[in-house]
Simulated scan of single mutants.
Amino acid sequence: MDAILHEKLLEETEEERAILEGDQAINKKIYTNRTSDFVIQSDKFLKDDLIMIRKHPRYINFPKHSHDYIEMNYVFHGTFHQKVAKQPIHLKKGDILLLNQYIEHELSACSEEDIVINFIIHPAFFDYILSNLSTGFIQSQMLQFLMNSMFDYNQTGQFLYYPVANSKRIQAIMNDLLKEMMFDSILSQSKIKFQMGLLILELIEEQNLTQEDTLQTSQHAFLTEVFRYIEEHYQDANLQSLAKQCHQTAYWISKQIKALTKQNFKDLVQEKRLLVAKNLLIYSDLSMRAIAEEVGYENISYFYRLFKQKYGNTPKAYKKQLIES
């Protein structure tokens, strides 16, 4: 453990000093503007950022509440006891708990040596991860699927518990994140975003390593085959050809893809074609018509319309913007 970081985190915050001086109720005005149900609001902490890191207040029980953001609890030192959807959860040093924005939990008071760090994460941050950490079509689509499996967007309360105290990689990332939190610099926010992205990827991998559900494994294998097919045949990809390769009906393939990715087969093919078109636009001297034909579009007007929907500009305007920037 970093002794300097530990000493810094032991220092009482203004909120903790008020509790020690006799304030025995959580000051809800710090957390929400609502007067009825206790929903902690991201606007109270995030301002214009996507992530905020703060130490959980010690010495007091925290009443039942939910959030309008995704929260991550990390036990830096000691233990942390809470009830999540009425289920007792006991975290020890090094453990991580992820909670989506639809779940309620109540927290037991931490002692002086119990140091818990709360990560307040705007849901939009996960779009940021996808756009910055996925390097290609297969990686992007698989990462999207994995994130959907981590954060179920059907508005039901969910949490994920990670007993990762023995993971040197994850603990090293957490240590770096806390240093950026405590010893702020001009690049801290950027570093925190990328380190958090790496942490999420490590947690996804950890989840896969411990996943014993054979259904989940078969789903991953199926999607890998789908994405690889599109990668190799995007110019003339069609559902019937994929179905034949998978020895299934086109109807079954279509339903599975929609259920697992929340996208249609046509959408996935289009995603790949436009990614290739963008790269040809940047790195080749091909004409717009040649690029459209190269990625599988005979109708150049249709290609222009799809490209603008995806990237916000026509291909010509997009390339001009890149040249001038």
Rank of each mutant, 00 (worst) to 15 (best):
S140N: 15
N154A: 11
G78V: 09
H90W: 04
I138D: 02
L178T: 05
H122L: 02
S185F: 12
P163M: 09
Q171I: 07
L203G: 06
L209Y: 11
E206W: 15
D152T: 12
D176W: 00
Y102W: 14
Q87G: 00
L130R: 15
K92R: 11
I186G: 00
N118K: 12
L146Q: 15
I186T: 11
K193P: 00
Q87S: 06
Y102G: 00
L143N: 13
G157W: 09
H105M: 03
E113D: 15
P88D: 12
D184T: 14
P123A: 08
A109C: 07
G94M: 04
A85I: 06
I121R: 05
Q139H: 14
Q87A: 03
M182P: 00
L91W: 02
D95Y: 05
E112V: 09
N73L: 07
G78W: 04
Q139V: 05
V116Y: 03
L130N: 11
D176R: 12
I170D: 02
Q171D: 05
V84P: 09
P88H: 11
A165C: 01
Q139C: 01
L146P: 01
V164D: 01
Y128V: 07
Y153K: 14
P123F: 10
I204W: 05
K191E: 10
S185I: 09
Q155T: 10
D95I: 02
H77V: 00
S140A: 13
Q155R: 15
E113T: 14
I89S: 04
F119M: 04
N132W: 00
F183H: 08
P163V: 06
N148Y: 10
N148G: 15
A109N: 08
A85Y: 14
Y69L: 10
C110F: 02
I173A: 01
S188W: 09
F125V: 03
Q155D: 10
I170S: 01
L91M: 15
L143P: 03
G78R: 10
L198P: 00
E106T: 10
S111I: 13
L98P: 03
L107P: 01
R169Y: 08
I186A: 09
K179T: 05
N118D: 15
N118V: 12
D114A: 07
Y153R: 13
Q189H: 12
C110Q: 13
Q82E: 13
F137R: 12
G197A: 09
M196S: 14
N175D: 13
N73Y: 05
I200A: 02
I103Q: 07
E202R: 11
A109S: 14
I120M: 11
F145Y: 15
E206R: 10
P123W: 10
G197K: 05
I96W: 02
